[in-house]
Amino acid sequence: MHTEAKLIQGLKSPSTFFYRLGETEIVPRFAKKMTWLFVLSALVFGFVAFFGIGMDSLAKEATSLTPLEYELEKTMFFFGRLIAGLLYAALILFFSSLVFWTISDHGEYRKIVMVQGLTLLILLLEKLTFVPLSLFFSIEWYSSPLSLGVIAQAITSKSYVVYLLGAISLFKMWMIYLQYRGIKYLTRQKNWLVWLLIVLVNVLFWALNALLAYLDLSTLI
Rank of each mutant, 00 (worst) to 15 (best):
E4F: 11
A5V: 11
S13F: 06
T16D: 03
F18I: 11
F18Y: 15
R20T: 01
E23W: 06
E23G: 04
T24W: 07
I26C: 15
P28E: 01
F30N: 13
A31H: 10
K32T: 04
W36L: 15
F45Q: 01
F45G: 01
F47R: 04
F50A: 09
G52E: 07
G52T: 14
I53R: 02
I53M: 06
L58V: 08
E61S: 13
A62W: 02
T66I: 05
P67N: 15
E71D: 14
M76P: 03
F79M: 05
G80P: 04
G80V: 00
R81K: 15
I83H: 09
G85V: 02
L91H: 04
F94L: 12
F94E: 08
V99C: 10
F100N: 03
I103A: 03
E108L: 12
E108T: 10
R110F: 13
K111G: 10
I112N: 10
I112L: 12
V113D: 11
V115A: 05
G117I: 11
L118A: 05
L120I: 02
K127T: 05
L128V: 04
T129S: 12
T129M: 10
T129E: 07
F130C: 04
F130M: 13
L133V: 04
F136S: 05
Y142M: 01
S144V: 06
A154C: 08
T156C: 00
T156D: 00
L165W: 05
A167R: 07
L170T: 01
F171G: 02
W174I: 00
M175H: 10
M175S: 11
L178A: 06
G182P: 00
I183A: 01
I183Q: 02
Y185W: 15
L186Q: 02
R188I: 05
Q189L: 12
L193D: 09
V194T: 10
L197C: 03
L197N: 03
I198G: 08
L200K: 12
N202L: 14
A207I: 08
N209P: 00
L212E: 11
